[in-house]
């Protein structure tokens, strides 16, 4: 029980990921499959973003101009959230958006070709 409460971010991402995976693999409608794919990718983004967070930490911008002398310039990493996973996820968001774009374009083509987006109806026509 305690691990569920303290590591709730992991449980949320696993739940989201399973919803996405279920939709990708079991839905008959191609648009629903794509929605599942997006949820799956978002779950991983949630996972990365949550591991950068810390309690009582602030945004990772070093404050200049407060106080003088060497002591005030010392940086304690504990005071700042970890920016690296967030920056990585900017790239992953770009990748997710472009994958979504390509998938939607392909779906448009499929609809033009078969006149339907239900997988079983398409397979019948093939």
């Amino acid at each position: 029980m305690e691990t569920i409460i303290t590591d709730y971010n992991y449980w949320i991402y696993i739940l989201l990921m399973m919803i996405g995976l279920y939709a990708m693999l079991s839905q008959n409608n191609l648009v629903k499959k794509i929605i599942g794919m997006s949820i799956f990718q978002t779950a991983i983004i949630v996972f990365y973003v949550s591991i950068g967070a810390k309690k009582d930490a602030t945004i990772p911008i070093i404050e200049h101009g407060h106080g003088h002398g060497a002591a005030s310039q010392a940086i304690s990493a504990l005071q700042y959230v970890n920016p690296l996973p967030h920056v990585l996820m900017l790239t992953a968001i770009v990748v997710a958006v472009s994958t979504l774009g390509v998938a939607l374009a392909i779906i448009l083509g499929i609809h033009r070709q078969y006149g339907t987006l239900e997988e079983d109806e398409i397979l019948e026509q093939i």
Binding site: L21, M24, F47, I106, I110, Q113, Y114
Partner: peptide, 21 residues
């Protein structure tokens, strides 16, 4: 081709996401 490519999008994205995880 179009439908096969769609299946590849789903599977390929799944593979890449597992790698990222």
């Amino acid at each position: 081709a179009m439908f096969s490519s769609f299946i590849y999008v789903i599977m390929g994205t799944l593979g890449a996401c597992f790698y990222l995880l």
